[in-house]
Structures are given as structure tokens and as C-alpha cells.
Nucleic acid binder design. Structure first.
Lengths: 369, 369
DNA sequence: ACGATTGCTGAATCGGCTG
DNA sequence: ACAGCCGATTCAGCAATCG
């Protein structure tokens, strides 16, 4: 019996699995707009070894060392644009991508992203605390790599867990330079001979920051150059779904074993700080409705210089202006905008308290109820 | 009488002057293969949309100058490739170029350099110890800019003063990430109204490291986007010849006045280390790089009996000895060893202060960064 | 005089929901 | 689609003022 798949039927995503094969072909088998985030660590070298494809997906013939640099760069660009095009198709409209590279290839990557319609959000520098020295003393120690973070399109509502990242960074907002050691020691995967299993294994700390910062629990993360599966391992720990693509059977095997050993963190551990923006919205009028503030009661700015009267409909009236708590505050301060919740205060027993106190009380009730 | 210039005759270089006009046309007037180093800080093409306010409602004074506006990426690329082509013609065969940019434009710059036949040597990250925060909490703090260092061609014998850079960096080889504060305070040039004279003035410490590291005394340094002349000012201090190109008459005037105030450092101060030596790990060179101590400035022992002169690479020279602050101190005291940080003092307004004062200052900054 | 406090500013691609 | 409006959001360094 043959199962015929409807052309329009939703295709199930191969979640939490490693797809074997070329990344462009494998991505072609995935449905459009199905992935929340892509993390890609493509080949850095310019002397491509034949795994490359032209824009029409025909295979590039075997390596020819006599190729001049122009042809080589051109070939690399064609490969880059081919897989980035497929990646963009697979991304959800509000999805985003991270790519990582060194100065050999990162300018090709960045230019291609811009040309294909991605919107650059930041470039991020991975500062290696323990880089390999420059042995010949002919250049600067190559002590960093560059990541580019881009949304699928300009205006996309990409995920950015601002408060979580700020918490990771001792309470100040996360900068575009991250100091992280290279992957060594126990974390570095070894093959049966005790040699490193993969030449460019990325540290889990790097993926941790990427995934905590720019995905939500349950999001689908795709890594088209999976290697030994750092992306999958960290995604599993963090309660994200993942899809890996890898051509090399040896790497797939190592990745499979590695990820099976990983245990997901507790749900509590995965809860990250959220911003006020994510909390439910409360109208000022509700405070009046519930009798927390009485119509006719006076509110004061912190300095006590300005005051306004509460009206029954949840607007304020001051000497020469009426409107929302925000509008009246902005007008009195001559400011372009004003957060009325923190600007206005009420008095109780000699104390002066911001009205946000009541909002928090209401939010707590909403949570409980 | 008319002087007829032979087509093949050497054309005199307009050394230590600012050329007025468009950088492409001005470079066309320079002879081929005449310049040792180019430092270029081209427009970044920021493409800002609306206004931005800080949380305290103050307005951010953004870069909205006409010279930073381009119709499209295509227009920007055409401009970039035009000036980089002319720059390459003007460079000596063993010459090199530095370009600086942010994620908005640096991928266009890097890709263009590669396409035009330059050979990338390093990308270098300028980590700002005091960047402007991301006020809306929507992205990572944009805390760095990227410099690309490239030779005119593959195989060129570019200048790289390995030992001088190592001396500047506590005796370990210089990495590809440089932590330097943005240009503020007295170094920041102001116009007659007290406003910043140029929106994107670069810190002298950045140019100090570039020129000490990749030029020789007497080299010709060209800056096709001269602005207020940081490149010229530092080149003059360091005994390099310079040529600036600038379209804006206001900037030229500021640069002219600035550079005329600069004094060249002593010749002795400009001799940098060329031989290998086992140096103790001292950060003294950073004090020089950041302008806390001037090359040529005299340091004194507490008693005032001994003195020595500061050199640009962070070594000292006294009557009959040169070396690190520790070595010179030990020699003058006839002692087996000496802590140069507490031995040497500088004078400010009649006060005599140990140089360790500045080290503590730098350490505080590094902590912050 | 000197430490503490307040104020200003820097190459920035810096909303999101509702009607 | 678009307008209107709510309402969230900052770090380091320097200078001027205050006590």
C-alpha cells in the first residue's frame, strides 16, 4: 500500500534528530517557515573540497589547487548564498539566524546576509580567553571569532530575552563582546584514538548564551552544520527542540551519543527573568473601579511639584490639561513621553507611594486567579 | 616661462598637508606606489530611522550627517570599491591598509577588500570600555567596532613591529582585541559653541597602536577620510609623514589647528625594541598608548637623583641604559632588582606621583570593560 | 581643599498593541 | 495598513556643583 502525501498537507518536522546529508538538500526537505532559530557554523576555509554547490544546486567538481583566488572566492560565495537562501525559506517570519566565522569568511557571510534580505541585529565578538598564539610573530594573535545575529527580515519581531541576558551579566546589559574560553578539557570530545573528534568544536557556553538570549523554551533550533552536535546538546539541556544536519557519518555518531547523555534541566532552572513588557497590561481605570484610588483623590509627582486629580473614568486632570496618566505627566514635565505608573504617587499615612504599587497588586491577583 | 612636467618624472608628495576635496579625486592626483600605509574611517551608512531618547527622555545626538547617507547598499558598495581601488593604486607594493567600521558597513568593506586583491592579515576588534548603552533593551550593547588590516597583495612584505606591540602589551604578544575607551574629555575636539566638532572622532590611543605596530618612522601615512585629523596628529607625534584628504572645510580647519599644536616626540622615544628579551609582565606601555604619559616625558626617582625618558613602546631610556621600567631602575640603583611601578614618578603641577597611580586607573577601567 | 552628588553624553540600523 | 497611544528602557567617564 502506498501513502500519498497531499501537496498542501503539513509536513511533520523531524524534531530532535540528525539528518544525514548535504545541508542544502536536507533543508529543501523541510517545510517553509517552520524553524524559530538557525545556528550555523559553516566551513571557514576558502579552499573548498568539493562539498560545495552552485546556486542551481549542481555539485562543484573536485578540488583544483590551480584555481586562482577569484574563482575560489566566487565559489565560496555561491555556496554561502545557496545555503543562506534555503535557510531563509525555512525560517519563520519572525525567526532569526546566527552565523559564526573568522576574518577569512565572515565578510562574505555578512555581505550575503544583507544581500539576501536578512536584517543585521548585532555582530558579536567571541573573545577567546585562551587563544592559540601566533607562533611566527607575523600578525596579531587571532584571539576572537565573529558571530552575526540577524532576523529574517527588517521589522521582524525577533526574540531577545533582555532581562535574562542582563542577569547573566551581573546585572548590567549584555555587551556585544563575550569572553569565553575555547572548548578544551572534559568538554572536548575525543575519538577512539583519544584525538579530538572534531577540529572546530564550539564551547557549550557560547551556545548557552545564544539560546538563552534569543529563543524561548520549546522553540525549534536548526543547525545545518551540526558537527559533533554542540547546538543539539545545549538545546536539549535548555528545553528547546533541535534539528541537526551533518554529512559526515563519524560526526553524526559522536553527536548522537553525546546528546543521548544530556539531561534536560529542571523546568524551574529554565525559567528566566522577564521584562515588565511581558507582563499583562493593566488599565489605570481598573484601580479606580476597584476602589484602590477614589475619584477626586490627588496624585503627586515624586518631587511634589506637580499634582493632578483622579477622575471616575481613569483619566487625570491638572491645572491646564487632562488625559491619561502618561499624557498628563509628559505635559507637565515638558517631556516627549512619560511612564505615568512610576511618575504619579498617592499618599497614605504620610507615605508617598507610586501608583505602580497598586498595579503590581492587581497583577498578583490575576496570576493567582 | 612654462614648466613642462615630464610624464614619467617623480611627482612630489604633498606631505604633512590636508588636501581639500573628494577622496577619490584627490587620490587620483597622487602618484602610484607612493604611500606606506592607509588608515581609512569611511562613512558607516548607519541608516537611522527615527529619533532615539534615553530613559530619562534626553535625546541622543545621533550621526545624521549628509556624508553618512547613501541611497542603497548598491550605491554604498560602488563608492567603497571606487575609493578602495584608488587607494590600492596609491599604495607601495609592500604597503598596507587599515579600515574601520561597524556591522552596518564592515562586511561590505571586508568583501570589497578581498575582491579587489588586498590580502587580509587580521581583523581587530576595538572593545570600547565605555560604549553607549542600548537604551531600548532590544539588542546587545554595541560595544565594539571592527578594524581590518590588509596588505596590498598576497605575499607583500608588510611592516609588523612585533616586539614593540609585545612591549605595549605587558610582554605578551598583542591580541586581535584591543580595549580602548572612546574619545571623550579634553581629547574630544569642540567647536566654538562647545559642541563636539566631529560626530565620530577616533581616540588617539587607537591610532597610536596602529602606527607604532604597522609603520616605521618616516613612513608616509594617508588618511582619505581625515575628519578632524586624529591620524595626522598621532603620525606627527610619532615621526611619521602624513597626508589627509577631507571634503569639509570646517573639519579641515579644526584638524589644521589641532595638528599645529602637536609636538613630535624625541627621536630616542621613537626607537622601539627590535630584539627579543624576557620581559617582566608590565602594563607600562598602555600608559603611553593612552596618553597618560607622553613619549619623551621624564620620569624621576623619588629622591630626584635619577631620571629617565619614556619611549613610545613603553620602555625607558636613561644616560647609559635602556629597557623596562624595572631594568632601568635597578641599573641606576645598582640593585639586583627594582619595582619600576613604585620607583618611577611623574610630575604634574608641582606634585611628584608614582606611575603606579596610572596603573591603578587603567586596572579600574579594565575591570569596568 | 576634597569627597560626594548631580548632570551630561557617546557611529544606534533601539516597540507593540488596539481599533 | 495606519494612526494613536500606552509605557518600557541606560553604562561609564567626565565635568561642574555642592557641602
Amino acid at each position: 500500500m502506498t501513502t500519498i502525501k497531499d501537496a498542501g498537507a503539513p509536513v511533520a518536522l523531524p524534531l530532535d534528530t540528525i539528518l544525514a546529508g548535504d545541508c542544502i538538500e536536507a533543508m529543501q526537505g523541510l517545510p517553509a517557515a517552520s524553524v524559530d532559530l538557525i545556528f550555523a557554523d559553516p566551513p571557514y576555509n576558502l579552499q573548498l573540497k568539493g562539498e560545495l554547490h552552485r546556486p542551481d544546486n549542481s555539485r562543484v567538481d573536485a578540488v583544483d589547487d590551480d584555481w586562482d583566488r577569484f574563482d575560489s572566492l566566487k565559489t565560496y560565495d555561491a555556496f554561502t548564498r545557496a545555503w543562506l537562501t534555503e535557510a531563509r525559506r525555512v525560517l519563520k517570519p519572525d525567526g532569526a539566524i546566527w552565523v559564526i566565522g573568522s576574518y577569512h569568511n565572515v565578510f562574505r557571510l555578512g555581505a550575503a546576509l544583507q544581500d539576501l534580505g536578512y536584517w543585521l541585529l548585532n555582530d558579536v565578538v567571541w573573545r577567546k580567553s585562551n587563544p592559540m598564539p601566533n607562533f611566527r610573530g607575523k600578525r596579531f594573535t587571532n584571539a576572537h571569532e565573529t558571530l552575526i545575529w540577524a532576523s529574517r527580515s527588517e521589522g521582524a519581531k525577533y526574540t531577545f530575552n533582555y532581562e535574562a541576558l542582563k542577569a547573566l551579566n551581573e546585572g548590567v546589559q549584555m555587551r556585544s563582546d563575550w569572553t569565553i574560553p575555547i572548548c578544551t578539557g572534559h568538554e572536548r570530545l575525543k575519538d577512539d584514538n583519544g584525538d579530538k573528534a572534531h577540529p572546530t568544536q564550539k564551547p557549550e557556553a557560547l551556545l548557552h548564551r545564544v539560546l538563552v538570549g534569543t529563543t524561548k523554551p520549546g522553540d525549534v533550533v536548526l543547525d545545518p552544520f551540526f558537527g559533533t552536535g554542540t547546538t543539539g546538546a545545549v538545546a536539549k539541556m535548555l528545553g528547546r527542540s533541535w534539528i541537526g544536519i551533518e554529512r559526515d557519518a563519524g560526526y553524526r555518531k559522536v553527536a548522537e551519543a553525546r546528546i543521548s547523555r544530556v539531561r534536560k534541566f529542571d523546568r524551574e532552572a529554565l525559567e528566566v527573568s522577564t521584562s515588565k513588557r511581558a507582563e499583562p497590561r493593566v488599565a489605570f481605570g481598573v484601580l479606580v473601579e476597584r476602589g484602590l484610588l477614589r475619584p477626586g483623590e490627588e496624585l503627586w509627582s515624586l518631587s511634589g511639584r506637580h499634582k493632578a486629580k483622579v477622575r471616575a473614568d481613569g483619566t487625570l486632570i491638572a491645572d491646564d490639561v487632562k488625559g491619561s496618566i502618561h499624557q498628563v505627566g509628559a505635559h507637565l514635565e515638558g517631556a516627549p513621553s512619560c511612564n505615568g505608573w512610576t511618575y504619579w504617587h498617592f499618599r497614605r499615612e504620610g507615605q508617598i507611594v507610586p501608583i505602580d504599587y497598586f498595579r503590581q497588586q492587581i497583577r498578583a491577583e490575576m496570576q493567582a486567579g
